[in-house]
Design a protein around this nucleic acid. Structure first.
Lengths: 208, 208
DNA sequence: AAGCAACCTGAGTTCAGTTCAGTTTGACTG
DNA sequence: CAGTCAAACTGAACTGAACTCAGGTTGCTT
């Protein structure tokens, strides 16, 4: 399973696509998508504004790409973490831990993803944007299914009480990702502590 | 405790402020803030675009007002629901139920609030916008404190195991509000069922 | 060295949001 | 019931950030 990467090996050696994505993640993640000027990203990379359009059809296309890459990464990380396990409670624990085992760049990407999730609801006018949007939506559903399936397996094995796995899965996922709305690496509580607390909450939610 | 209302009794009889807020909630809630043209709201109300500026300094000012009103309502509803109770588990149950006892208009307002929460992070340039933003931020903290205090009371009474009440409160709140990201009244699952499921989850999370 | 595709640019366009410079409306006063 | 005044409104013009266009430059390939 190819881990989603900012650096695409298909790119030419002169390409600034990766640099643009990194700069955009930095700016969108710190100041927010709307309050970041597209030209600021160009300045950060050291190119003219119009050069951005060589790599992305629009500012929104860049944002959607960032979101899609992050969703792909989240899904891959879930799959990788839960690959070899068979004991439901252990699987849940490891999945929560995987969700919080992220770099600072990935934290920004999660924040961007959460803050702009509603962008995925409405169709886009341009083709390439719409392609990214649809891909991102499918990945959202895939991540939701990752959790739903995990819970259903646990229920059918008798490890978890029977409940609506879909609603429960969305609730678990909602709680996990809500952290990215307020967590800052500079904050008082270390991420490991949050992860541990959420892990316990999820286990009690689904297994009791 | 004055319940936050769209209709402000301070308004003159000819005022269209309430109509604008209702139309904006409708449009922002269905299509999203960014993809709604400010002039569409004017059309919906039946006035010229420039007339909007008689009531709101900007499109963002209107959005911030909607968010502030909804936060005020959420806080008031929490306080009202938990007023007379003293038994922690019962208080938690009633608080969750109150969070989901909302009209269709209020669902849209919650959706708008969740989708645009990140707008509250950065300062605004204009005075009136900044006033609304700061008020909204304080209300967010108030709602967070509502939950945190509820949990702390339960812990000190020995009804809940001792945990970091702040992080736990944010997690509970995050799970509850995450519903507004995906719930639609037309969906397969009725809100009452979701409310019940979340209520159980929250109780297991905090009381076990 | 020619060819050519990737990469880049300055000047100009677009469009939603906003400002401006007034005009209309209707409740209230004398 | 005429005059007044603030609230409510308007069409035309402005602004700024996203985007388009018509080319120009770079450096790898043969």
């Amino acid at each position: 399973m190819a881990r989603a990467r900012i650096v695409d090996p298909e790119e030419g050696p002169r390409s600034k696509r990766a640099a643009i994505l990194v700069a955009a993640v930095e700016r969108f993640g710190e100041d927010g998508y709307e309050s970041t000027k597209w030209s600021e990203v160009a300045d950060r990379v050291g190119i003219g504004q119009t050069a951005l359009y060589h790599y992305f059809e629009s500012k929104a296309h860049c944002l959607l790409t960032i979101m899609r890459l992050e969703l792909q990464r989240s899904h891959d990380q879930f799959v990788e973490a839960t690959r070899d396990l068979t004991e439901p409670v252990g699987e849940v624990r490891v999945a929560v831990r995987a969700a919080f085992a992220v770099s600072e760049q990935e934290i920004r990407q999660m924040r961007i993803l959460q803050a702009n999730m509603s962008l995925l609801a409405n169709p886009r006018k341009s083709k390439r944007e719409e392609t990214e949007r649809v891909a991102a939506r499918q990945l959202v559903q895939m991540v939701e299914r990752d959790w739903t399936n995990l819970l259903m397996r646990g229920m059918s094995k008798g490890a978890f009480p029977l409940r609506d796995a879909h609603t429960l899965g969305l609730s678990v996922l909602g709680m996990i990702v809500s952290v990215w709305r307020w967590y800052r690496p500079t904050g008082a509580i270390p991420l490991a502590e949050i992860s541990e607390m959420i892990e316990g909450c999820v286990v009690r939610m689904v297994a009791e």
